[in-house]
Design a protein around this nucleic acid. Structure first.
Length: 619
DNA sequence: GGACTTGGC
DNA sequence: GGGCCAAGTCC
């Protein structure tokens, strides 16, 4: 039964699914010198702290930042006629993702409605159109992906020693264990040596931890949550996060508090440099971090102490847990006639149901469920990074492919080992291949590299060497170009010479804005360019230039910045004047004579109004 | 390798 | 609720 389900984090138990009693008694493990001074305890590290950080109403925030809209204004992002993102100001009006635009506007007439950018048939770049139609347009999430990458980059910059795993477009897991260990040893250097009189040597417990001030570190999830049925007059000791009892403080709490400091710093960095507010959950593992993040949103971080885990999990509808939302969770619910993690399960009966019985009914893998209901999750935070070169060779083959067609997806498959029958050894990973990209070796290579990193990792990131015996890179969802059979090369050549004869090659391929009257010079290096329209030099922020970023990625980022800067001008023009609308056209679009004539002069106040560009350094 | 399923956002 | 996407399985 379980074997039909998607990959769950079962690898730790692969083969022999057993758990010892001690695994469930570890909420308040005694931490010893050996624990503190070891460096590779992995997922069983008693000081382990993981955070999940996600962006608040991410797509909405992307548009708000992009277009320089006041963040306090209610705003929604539309896809065809349904809402795909609703920012928090809009939620105050009771608008939810399930509403139709009309209903949303009824609730809030001043609502800013932005349709997600789309590729229009025959256009090379995504844009904002007046009447996007499912028949002729394709949704583009490219901008959100770029913004997502920037956020991840800030996480990495802020935590060079941590592990970061991008979990989705708007969230990432961060493993703070290593930075925490460093900080503890820095702040409490006396812990670095096992005292000579320690009774059990390195296995002696650490001295009692210092008291912790949780002030400003976030919401501490209470050990005894206020009972919802009582009137709201709660005993202070029950609502106070630490419940006034520092004697219960553990070294893991110290670890959590350090993680909270670091997390707050990184989140602030994201807010200041990119304009996105985030929410985070901090706890002992990924599963709990994710749950904790939703404790309070937006613009908030929450901390789940080990002692608070049982009561926090109890009322949780367990079908909301990742991988238990589908038929698996349903099977459990029906078998045991329960709906929440704790109330029925653990307190009444679950602990009386032996792991053996569960495994008989639901298969070996159900130990994963058994554990997760108790807040145990040994899945790693896996960083996906660093380059691998082998793949470039493979990619050269793809380079030779017939370029007359445009792939929508690029996929990488690998096979490990020689045993053909072992299904587990086959793996694959795919990602979208946007129309915006010029199809060159470099672009293919960067995508291939990325997939490779995610699929295989690197020598450094693995304990055991991996023998990949087969690598396959492929395109899928191939569509022919609108006007037919021209090769990509021919297409690009025509385009850069006819549309942008006076531009540098790089600029010609990427620019969306062709200002009619501006000087045609658009000098660019690999980190900045001069906008011919406002004559300002726009540069990538040091997020992109500080190092650790490949030239490819940086050049993508610069191209994106160029597009965004152009978009800014169009958006600004639009804000100034109602557009003359006839046929569907780009709402944010290359300037034509009518708009350029009316274009106002550049003034000093431009700099403060300038949407996304304000987050980049100006030279 | 493509069609289909499942699950998550 | 539904469009979209990733990843796995089946044939």
């Amino acid at each position: 039964m379980l074997s039909d389900s998607p990959a769950r984090p079962t690898s730790v138990w692969k083969g022999k699914a057993r758990a010892s009693e001690v695994d469930f008694e570890d909420l308040n493990l005694v931490i010893t010198y050996r624990h503190l001074l070891s460096h590779n305890l992995g997922v069983r590290d008693p000081l382990r702290v993981v955070a999940l950080c996600d962006s608040d109403a991410f797509y909405a925030a992307c548009e708000q930042v992009h277009l320089g809209i006041d963040p306090s204004r209610p705003l929604v992002v539309l896809q065809w006629d349904s809402l795909i993102a609703v920012n928090y100001p809009a939620r105050k009006f009771g608008i939810s993702r399930m509403d139709k635009v009309k209903d949303a506007l009824k609730r809030c007439p001043e609502l800013v409605v932005i349709h997600v950018a789309t590729y229009k048939e025959g256009e090379k770049e995504p844009g904002y159109w007046e009447k996007p139609d499912t028949q002729t347009h394709k949704v583009s999430l490219d901008h959100y992906r770029r913004e997502s990458m920037k956020i991840i980059q800030l996480f990495k910059d802020g935590l060079p020693n941590g592990e970061i795993e991008k979990a989705s477009i708007d969230e990432a897991f961060i493993d703070f264990t290593r930075p925490i260990r460093e900080t503890i040893l820095e702040r409490y250097p006396y812990l670095a040596q096992v005292p000579p009189d320690a009774p059990n040597g390195a296995d002696s417990p650490l001295p009692p931890p210092p008291p912790i001030s949780w002030d400003g570190l976030g919401n501490i999830i209470p050990v005894h949550p206020p009972a919802p049925t009582e009137n709201s007059a709660v005993h202070p000791a029950m609502s106070d996060g630490v419940e006034g009892d520092d004697s219960l403080t553990t070294w893991h709490d110290v670890a959590l508090s350090i993680a909270a400091e670091l997390m707050a710093k990184i989140r602030e960095d994201v807010r200041v440099k990119l304009g996105y507010t985030t929410s985070a959950g901090i706890a002992r593992n990924k599963f709990l971090a994710k749950l904790t993040a939703s404790y309070k949103k937006p613009m908030s971080q929450s901390i789940l102490r080990n002692t608070a885990i049982p009561n926090y999990l109890k009322p949780m509808p367990f079908q909301k847990i990742r991988f238990l939302g589908g038929k698996l969770g349903k099977a459990f619910a029906e078998e045991y006639d329960v709906s929440t993690v704790g109330a029925d399960f653990i307190v009444m009966g679950f602990r009386t149901i032996s792991l053996d019985e569960m495994q008989r009914k639901f298969g070996e893998d159900s130990i994963w469920v058994y554990e997760i209901l108790r807040g145990i999750d040994r899945s790693e935070v896996k960083e996906k990074s660093v380059v691998n070169k082998k793949l470039a060779l493979r990619l050269n083959e793809a380079r030779e492919a017939n370029p007359a067609q445009w792939p929508k997806t690029i996929a990488l498959h690998t096979r490990q080992g020689l045993c053909v029958k072992e299904y587990d050894t086959f793996r694959s990973k795919q990602t979208g291949f946007p129309f915006t990209k010029n199809i060159t070796v470099d672009v293919i290579a960067s995508y291939g590299d990325r997939l490779w990193k995610e699929l295989v990792g690197t020598e450094e990131s693995r304990a055991t060497p991996m023998k990949i015996t087969n690598v396959q890179l492929s395109f899928a969802g191939i569509e022919t170009m609108e006007t037919g059979q021209r090769s990509i090369e021919g297409f690009l050549k025509t385009r850069s010479s006819s549309e942008a004869p006076q531009q540098s090659d790089a600029a010609g391929k990427r620019k969306r804005s062709e200002p009619v009257e501006a000087t045609p010079t658009d000098i660019s290096d690999n980190a900045s360019f001069v906008c011919p329209r406002c004559c300002k030099s726009v540069a990538l922020s040091d997020v992109w230039t500080d190092g650790g970023i490949s030239d490819e990625i940086r050049s993508d980022a610069l191209a994106a910045l160029r597009m965004e800067h152009a978009d800014f001008h169009f958006a600004q023009d639009l804000a100034k004047e109602s557009s003359d609308n006839d046929a569907p056209k780009r709402i944010i679009r290359p300037i034509d004579k009518t708009t350029s004539k009316k274009r106002r002069k550049q003034t000093a106040d431009d700099s403060e109004a300038e949407g996304i560009a304000k987050f980049f350094n100006r030279k």
